[in-house]
Design a protein around this nucleic acid. Sequence first.
DNA 1: AGTTAATTGGACAAAATTGTCCGATTTGAT
DNA 2: ATCAAATCGGACAATTTTGTCCAATTAACT
Lengths: 144, 144
Amino acid sequence: MLSKASQYAIKSLLFISANQQVGVRFSVKDVAIAIDSPPAFTSKILQQLVAAKIITSVKGSGGGFEISTSKIVSTKVISIIKAIEGDHFSSGCFLGLPDCSEKNPCPVHKLYAPLREKLNQGLYNVTLDDLINNKGKQPFNLKG
Amino acid sequence: MLSKASQYAIKSLLFISANQQVGVRFSVKDVAIAIDSPPAFTSKILQQLVAAKIITSVKGSGGGFEISTSKIVSTKVISIIKAIEGDHFSSGCFLGLPDCSEKNPCPVHKLYAPLREKLNQGLYNVTLDDLINNKGKQPFNLKG
DNA sequence: AGTTAATTGGACAAAATTGTCCGATTTGAT
DNA sequence: ATCAAATCGGACAATTTTGTCCAATTAACT
């Protein structure tokens, strides 16, 4: 499964994106309360998202984090995960074999590979905007 | 993803099952070499599999681990994972939300839930025998 | 200028996972 | 009887992940 760090990253971005308005910024505290996460740890993750240029930050009083509309539209879920975990996500074999492939499959390859592939495609094709606007369907939750 | 411990467990069982013959036993060392894993850690995992009654062990000189034909046929991959990790596997939400469901979905639920469901079904329906006999298709590897 | 509210960066701490070591026990063989 | 080969159990160590704390910096406001 996804690391806690990536989960917090996605949730943070969903919260910030879903509530973004011009001139509005969110503090670490705002985010941590909204997504029910440990503030200091969340702070580190927001810093990583700034470093990855997904969000911007403003220091000082009245400062906080914000995201541009264009980033909401363009940021893919896979990019968020890779910003946190590096490039070594999800391409992995279920059994952890380093060169498992169609030609050289591990025993569960046939079962797992197609699902992994679908998930990768999903994470690649879905953006923050897709998630928060949810195609007009159900509302979603970010807490328990 | 799967824990290392579960990966070693599955690989160990695949090795033992694929090479099982009457009167043949495998030592920790045999298994660790075959699946390229740390011997002492592998030993602990084999102990867990004995406790879960998937394999049996014989102490002393000439001893080792073996698996019965009936266990090869009846042991589902999901049971192996649960023997190692406990019951809290795979039912989880992608974002880690404790009560994510159809009625109360997290933002990625629609994307992830069907895939998770398919994986669960796969792990539930596939046995050691299925994997090692591979429906006559390609051979498989357990090392790198 | 001073105060306050905020991010940033660094070091540190806790917890979980992964991995090691060794003595005790058991069994087979000489 | 002794020795060698094996599992078992417990304590321990290393690594990774998760989480905390605090001083430094920045910016707005009075």
